[in-house]
Design a protein around this nucleic acid. Sequence first.
DNA 1: GCGACAG
DNA 2: ATCTTGTCGC
Length: 219
Amino acid sequence: MAEARRLQSELASRVQTGPPLDLDRVRFVAGADVSTGDEMAYATVAVLRFPELEVVEVRGAGAPLSFPYVPGLLAFREIPSVAEALSRIETPVDAVIFDAQGLAHPRRLGLASHLGLFLDVPSVGCAKSRLTGRFEEPDRKKGSATDLVDRGEVVGRVVRTRDGVSPVFVSVGNRIDLQSAVDLVLACCTRYRLPEPTRQAHNAANRLRRAGGNQESLF
DNA sequence: GCGACAG
DNA sequence: ATCTTGTCGC
């Protein structure tokens, strides 16, 4: 456990904040999520055409759960399945959005940053709740956002993706700047609180788990 | 020691 | 995350 934290601190130095991502040149965005059972984790990656947000590919993978859920160490529990699902994607994606934190992490290496280090594309962390940092509630209208500050540094943005809904926590995963990460997330939230790629992946992961890992459930 | 704590 | 029916709000 202590060893895992040590590894995070070491890898954190390799995370790249920036450069900005030109959304006008983004063609495909992927979303990744995991559904867990008693002893298995089912991960899926959904690729959507951008900015239309139509699903063009969905891939999944199952892996035995060998690590418990410990706040701050989520990556060690979900990486096996997610990494496998990501490797199965054939579409050349321009960015990946994770249902987790990126730099908004105690040691600056949330799952989105950890996995982002092994991807050659920008990664973004978009979590439904806070892990670390302080913030003020953003205004209730869509697009409003406030800084997420931890130990004196801005580690992310608390973003209202729809009028009145609870805000999401956006942070840099790797190879992208915070502003671009927020813009990408907002561009992916046309109908729901969570970005469409993430929603699609979430639904697919649930189906995959309920189907006991049967890949055909993804179609 | 106490409280907080992604999914 | 997962377990679950009805129900409050736009």
